[in-house]
Nucleic acid binder design. Structure first.
Lengths: 137, 137
DNA sequence: CCGGATATTAGACATATTCTAATACTTGAA
DNA sequence: TTCAAGTATTAGAATATGTCTAATATCCGG
């Protein structure tokens, strides 16, 4: 996040020190962090940020379209700065969540669902990431 | 659930009065209830059932393969007596969760995911159920 | 009926999230 | 700079889901 201040302003969000720290902690984070993980990262970054402020800011960011929540972990919501359509893979060994590009997968058969107005969908896959032999992973 | 007692026995579960009430409350319930909803339904059914027993029994049923948990609602797990592969549609107006048969949808492109061992997957769709004009729904 | 294994229970505990009400900051105008 | 109004932050209380504990109750084979 090169310019979190401008990014927040562009979305009509007053860029306070706390919000900038929270934005920097989450907006380029592809690890699907929880609110608590974002709290820790934001506190490391610059200022004294309270838990309530992290929740307030995250909910505001979601409302303003900077973030989306995803139901991918038991007991807690995770935050995803990728607000475009995509799929998710969950590694069962350690719970790692990985974004899967939208165009890697095609879902066919939606004409069967003619009684439903589908606004969005995603494929959620579970399994294990293979360790590739010659490249890092 | 015509014979919850036999069903529990078949799965190696001692069929106490509480467990039978819980089984009857959840095993033919396609509404994807939460633990708390199951507690209420079980209490209506027959006996004094405590919250702890509901959680104990539900976790046991999951372990023994009678139920599966699904992450489809914020803040709480839901229980699904359909333990076979299927998809889910979530009605955004009221949160209703509807099972979608496995063979209605086909997911293509999994060769792109050659670095992942996929154990299972499902499509999660969100939108609104249309009211069909000549049939109930 | 006895005793050991198993099941149930209330309430304590842990955690995630929201609410409340007080305090602090920001901003624009005088 | 100072003021006031609006906005943001905060600690801690409140709520909700779920687990744990330790005491009690039930079940079942002998």
């Amino acid at each position: 996040m090169k310019n979190a201040v401008a990014f927040l302003k562009d979305h009509g969000i007053q860029p306070t020190a706390q919000r900038v720290a929270i934005a920097e902690a989450v907006l380029e984070n592809t690890d699907h962090p929880t609110a608590d993980e974002i709290l820790v990262a934001a506190q490391e970054r610059c200022s004294i940020v309270s838990r309530a402020t992290v929740y307030n800011a995250l909910n505001l960011f979601v409302e303003k379209g900077l973030l989306r929540t995803q139901l991918l972990r038991e007991g807690t919501v995770v935050f995803d700065p990728n607000v475009h359509s995509h799929h998710h893979f969950i590694d069962e060994t350690d719970g790692t969540i990985i974004d899967i590009p939208w165009d890697w997968l095609t879902v066919q058969g939606q004409q069967k669902l003619k009684n439903y107005d589908i606004r969005e969908y995603q494929v959620i896959l579970r399994g294990r990431k293979k360790r590739s032999s010659h490249k890092g992973g």
